[in-house]
Design a binder for these strands. Sequence first.
DNA 1: ACGGTTGTTAGGCC
DNA 2: AGGCCTAACAACCG
Length: 243
Amino acid sequence: MEGPSLFLLREETKQFAGKRVLEAKGYAKIDFSLLQNKVVQDIRTWGKHYLILFPQFTVRVHFGLFGNYRVDEHKAGKNASMHLRFSNGELNCYIAHIKIIEEEISDIYDWRLDMLSEKWNAAYVKKVVSQQPAGIYIGDLLLNPDIFSGVGNIIRNEVLYRCGVHPASPLGKLPSDKITAIIKDTHKYSLEFLHALPSHTVGKTWTVYNKKLCPKGHTVIKSVMGKTKRNVFICKVCQKKYK
DNA sequence: ACGGTTGTTAGGCC
DNA sequence: AGGCCTAACAACCG
């Protein structure tokens, strides 16, 4: 799940803020008794982190590659990693990594880097990016969750096509205005992704991801690239390799 | 039926 | 110490 899906989950579970946990269980290795009878203070997201705030601690949920969830229903025969029941509904998380965070979340999360936060700040992202090694591929950099919080493999591939940049371009070889354009487009495309989610039409926004041809009819090459070893989809005509 | 995957962390090995 | 690598997750899709 990429950032926009987490944002949607937050929207779908807002009604649990202010509610008391009536039941908490699951196969996750946390002490569920800590959650029992506690009142949810707030529900937030930071990138791909789904955060349930309680007065003394925060439950951090990460869905990883395979995770998913159900609100007010559950999957038959599936074991939830975390099940929370409230008076007005329930949340079930599957194959999710659950962690209890003791720290104040404002100390560990910088909302200027969260693409879908109102506090997201393109100039600040640019500043952080400028401190990265010049040799790093832009394709790898976009998958750094500490900088491009919320960007996943679909968003990085789409943004790089939209900006006309080959993923194996080293950061130091990209013109400054091109870096700015990429940063701004991670935000813009994430919103398009988010808005397409409820109608299940995200696939219609794809230009290269899982495509054989780009919108201009050129061949899209699928390969694995960089340190992140994830699939990249590249149109060699539309995307320039800076070097 | 089975291989690939919309991530990330932990832990081992040099 | 720290960079690099891999396993783990155990589900869904085509």
